[in-house]
Design a protein around this nucleic acid. Structure first.
Length: 476
RNA sequence: CGGGGAAUGGCGCAGUCUGGUAGCGCGCACGGUUUGGGACCGUGAGGCCCCGGGUUCAAGUCCCGGUUCCCCGACCA
């Protein structure tokens, strides 16, 4: 069995070790690509299903668009093409012949969506259009890291069209909130909602919002984004509708996305030196049963009881696994802890005698997380424990996030704060300010939090009067 | 894309300086003893030593070119 580098020793190495030991991924043969192995993909699927339900609950429907986009489409929106050109994969040969027009492998779908919407939308009665895509996109990244930044990555991208800017902006915020809630309620992962600086905007957007999560090493991870595209794409692709007043108007569009990067974020937020710690709601295996016996006599006593308990838990809809491998119990305990299974049920001869089981909770590793409970009402006890684990993971992550944000009102205070966490600091929304932060402190403006106390401050870089503060820190 | 490190059985590594029959630990298979926190003994299987070229009687080892991964930086919804 391999070893996991301690988190405190080398966080990057720890992250890779955890992913490897949990059997979540392998490298692909082309640089920067990864294979999501069953355990990793199932985790992604569970996150996807939870998020998809939230999309449906807010009135969205799914569709699928081609991965091939005519190169000319990208050129229609000036800042969009400028932003994405350097990282495009382009197909120039098809069927053995040079193509007349190169085809781009989608880096994101705003353009091909814009083209379709221009044909689909005719009247104000057609609005709003609320479509989401689950797909993968390709960006030729120079520096990759499993799940956090890969050349091809799996994600969802929502694309909506609205009659008014007010409606579009409401949608932008609604979906940002969906991401935030998905993080908190499904993944026990807190984040800060905010508006990105002009410099950090999506190529082609008039406004970008994000949720920013804090990883175990206190670096920031942009975990989801929601964009107000204004009428930029509507004008570039001629997305118009005839309004009640019989005049043609351009639509207001939005787009929003969250990728499997969020999975990597979850690992980096919840994991510990033993390996993964998964939130019960998305864990591929929620409960594992480890039977314990010394000989055939004990085995014949233990197995029927363990089987019965397994059947009960399974019937309740909980994702449960029976570990009947021929390994020692100690090995299995460590193995499942590495894989982050939230709840472990141990059943041995003593438990059969006492009508009990040992319940071990992963959020408290080792013997500290063990307790003995009755076999009667076990399913209910497990449900309650999973709720508790979710809450405890969230509480720990929230304390880590909030405890490592420090208010700073001067450059010196900011410099001090970002050495070990984030700073909440008065900052002018100006690309020159962002550039200075990057150059001098190797930090970025993560976002201007939407929820913040009103006030008046002096920008710590320019000295100009500002009315909001920004979160600043090192990031992935 | 710049700087640094690395690539040897599934995983982690030694061997490279000084060329001469490919090694260790873990894992894997089989047998036995074990089993409530990573068991032990025995037997065995498994190698284009990253790829291509060169030097040499002889290359894992030396030379040239390339690829991939990791770390730092630039870039990056």
């Amino acid at each position: 069995m391999g070893k996991i580098t301690p988190r405190s020793e080398d966080f990057s190495q720890w992250y890779l070790d955890v992913l490897r030991e949990a059997d979540m991924f392998d490298y692909g043969p082309v640089g920067g690509t990864i294979i999501a192995k069953p355990y990793g993909w199932t985790l992604y699927e569970n996150m996807k299903d939870a998020l998809d339900k939230r999309f449906k609950d807010t009135g969205h429907v799914n569709a699928q668009f081609p991965m091939f986009i005519p190169q000319s489409f990208l050129r229609k929106e000036a800042s969009h093409v400028e932003g994405f050109s350097p990282e495009l994969a382009v197909v120039t040969i098809g069927g053995g012949k040079e193509l007349e027009e190169p085809i781009v492998v989608r880096p994101t779908s705003e353009t091909i969506i814009g083209d379709a919407y221009s044909r689909w939308i005719k009247s104000y009665r057609d609005l709003p259009v609320l479509i989401n895509l689950w797909n993968s996109v390709v960006r030729w990244e120079k520096r990759t890291k499993p799940f956090l930044r890969t050349m091809e990555f799996y994600w969802q991208e929502g694309h909506t069209a609205h009659a008014t800017h007010e409606e579009a902006w409401e949608e932008v915020i609604r979906m940002l909130n969906v991401y935030h809630t998905h993080g908190v309620e499904d993944c026990a992962m807190p984040s800060i909602r905010g508006r990105k600086s002009k410099n950090e905007r999506f190529a082609g957007a008039i406004n970008t919002t994000s949720i920013e999560a804090m990883m175990g090493d206190k670096k920031a991870l942009q975990a989801g984004t929601s964009h107000d595209l204004g009428q930029n794409f509507a004008k570039a692709f001629d997305i118009k509708y005839l309004d009640r007043d019989n005049t043609e108007k351009y639509c207001w569009t939005t787009s929003w996305g969250m990728s499997w990067r969020f999975l990597g974020g979850m690992v980096m937020v919840h994991g510990d030196d033993q390996g993964l710690r998964l939130p019960p709601k998305v864990a591929p295996i929620q409960v594992v049963i480890v039977p314990i016996f010394k000989n055939d006599t004990e085995k014949s006593v233990v197995l029927p009881v363990a089987d019965r308990i397994f059947a009960q838990i399974k019937a309740s809809g909980i994702r449960v696994k029976f570990d009947d491998r021929e390994e020692t119990p100690g090995f299995k305990f460590n193995d499942w802890e590495m894989r982050g299974v939230p709840v472990r049920v141990e059943i041995g001869p003593k438990d059969v005698d006492k009508n009990s089981v040992a319940l071990a909770r992963r959020d408290r590793p080792g013997k500290a997380g063990k307790s003995f409970v009755s076999q009667d009402g076990l399913v209910e006890a497990i449900r309650a424990l999973m709720e508790e684990i979710h809450a405890s993971l969230h509480t720990q992550a929230e304390a880590h996030l909030m405890g490592n944000i420090r208010e700073a009102n001067t450059y010196a205070e900011m410099k001090e704060a970002v050495q070990d966490g984030w700073a909440l600091v008065p900052l002018l929304d100006d690309p020159a300010v962002d550039a200075k932060l990057k150059e001098e402190l190797q930090v970025t403006n993560r976002n201007f939090p939407l929820e913040q106390a009103p006030g008046e401050w002096k920008c710590v870089i320019t000295g100009e009067t500002v009315h909001e503060r920004a979160l600043v820190g090192k990031s992935y």
